[in-house]
Each structure stands twice: as C-alpha cells, then as structure tokens.
C-alpha cells in the first residue's frame, strides 16, 4: 500500500512544554484513520500538523517520501489537503459559492466548477439549497456544505476535526450515515478526529488512541477496540462511564 504521510520522531514543543510526541505514524492511501482521545490530548494539533497548517519543532514529517513542513510546503502541495472542522465556518454567499470556493481559488474553469459543485451538492443531498445564503442554514445543512466544500477540491487527504460533534443526535445520525456512503464511494484517504466512540466505531477502518500528546495504541479499529492496551482500556472505561 502507498504511504502518503509519514511521521518520524515528530515533536511539537512550545516553550519547553512538549505538546506532541509522535515517534512513528503512517497514513496510507485509502485509509480512514480515526484519532480518538480526550479533550486536550493534542488531537486537533496533530491534525493541523498533518495538514501542514502548523510547524513541528523537530523530527521528520514527509509527504510521498518528501520531507516537508508547514513553512516549506508549496502552495500546490498544500492544496492537496482539505479540512473540515467542528464549526462549519461558511462564508457570506450562497451554498454554491461556498462549495465552489476551493475550486475557484485553484482557478478551475467555471464550467468544471459548476459540474463538480453540482455533483457534490447532489451527493450531500443539498442541491435544493444551492442559491440559499450559507449563513442562514441550519446546523446540519451547514455541516453538509462544509463537508462538500472540503471534498469538492478532490483532496489526497481529507482531515476532519469532530465534524459531527456539534449536531443534535438525529441530524448527526443521518449525516453520518450519508457520509459513510460518500466516503466509501470516493475512497478518499481520511483522518478523522473525534472523542466519540460511536462515531469512531461506525466510520473508521484504523484507529489511533491519543493521550497526553502521544499515540498510545494504533491498528485496525476493531483490533484496538477489542484488544485495548492499558492506556486505551483506561480511556475507554472513562468514556463508558458517561455513556
């Protein structure tokens, strides 16, 4: 299998405090990797680091075998990644314009933009909202637009930071169901950060458990969940108390 991202002894340090310490991590093509851990474990920071939006302090971070960092990455390479966060962060404009934005920034011809945006609106079942202002949408609708916007540029890797966490339960279930199909169909390599066991179990193929800026266990999702090591088990137990 083709390795896209590879981390070797990567550390992020802010004023002597080690925020992240990842001795070894690989992201391979077609993988749907879940990163799970409690709040403050450094999941979001790891995501930013992987998407080359934040610099690491030491170690080697390479994409397709080429060593890179947020400060040295070319615009062209940066444009191979896409990100969607918990907040939809849509811009003032129509749904169509929002989804088209990434393509427009890449100077894709208008006709092609239209084709692609139409496709992704259809895929996310939001075609009827095309001309609606994105700032007037409901939470679920907005998050569909957010995900469609991220996927419309056809990223090599899609980074998702708790995209379903802010939604109410029924909305979340519907969107997750749709998204699972979409992800499977597009076969986009995805890194998915969440603290929700149900989401992780439902969506991911591989899983990394993260505590205190370190990955404590990783492997196939089913393996990790069925054979947790001590750290994983203690985190999962904590989690189960509230479920």
């Amino acid at each position: 299998m083709n390795t896209l991202l590879k981390l070797n002894e990567v550390k992020l340090q802010i004023e002597k405090k080690i925020i992240l310490n990842i001795p070894d991590l690989q992201i391979v093509q077609g993988e749907f990797l879940g990163v799970m851990g409690p709040n403050g474990a450094g999941k979001s920071t790891l995501l930013k680091l992987l998407a080359f939006l934040e610099c690491h302090s030491s170690g080697v971070l390479s994409y397709l075998g080429k060593e890179l960092s947020a400060s040295t990455i070319s615009l062209e390479t940066r444009r191979k990644f896409s990100i969607a966060l918990q907040q939809s962060l849509l811009l003032d404009g129509t749904v169509f314009q929002n989804i088209a934005l990434g393509l427009k920034l890449r100077k894709v011809p208008k006709k092609e933009i239209k084709k692609k945006v139409d496709y992704w609106m259809e895929t996310f079942k939001i075609s009827h909202l095309a001309q609606k202002n994105a700032l007037t949408l409901s939470g679920g609708e907005a998050q569909r637009v957010n995900l469609a916007r991220a996927m419309a540029v056809g990223p090599d890797i899609l980074f998702l930071d708790e995209p379903f966490s802010a939604l109410d339960f029924p909305t979340k279930i519907k969107l997750m169901e749709d998204f699972k199909h979409i992800a499977a169909k597009s076969n986009t390599t995805t890194v998915f950060v969440s603290h929700d066991l149900a989401e992780i179990r439902y969506l991911t193929t591989t899983l990394a458990i993260m505590l205190d800026g370190q990955i404590k266990q990783s492997g196939l999702t089913s393996d990790v969940l069925e054979h947790p090591n001590l750290d994983t088990a203690s985190f999962l137990n904590e989690w189960k108390k509230f479920y």
Partner: peptide, 19 residues
C-alpha cells in the same frame, strides 16, 4: 479558526485578503 479554514481551502495570502 476562520483564518485556518481559509488557508486550508488553498488560498494564497492575496486570495485570503480578498475573501
């Protein structure tokens, strides 16, 4: 967060300012 999102969408500095 918005700045991060815009950058992640692949905007150059100038494009970011216009957005």
């Amino acid at each position: 967060k918005l700045l991060l999102q815009i950058k992640a969408l692949g905007a150059t500095r100038t494009q970011t300012l216009f957005i």
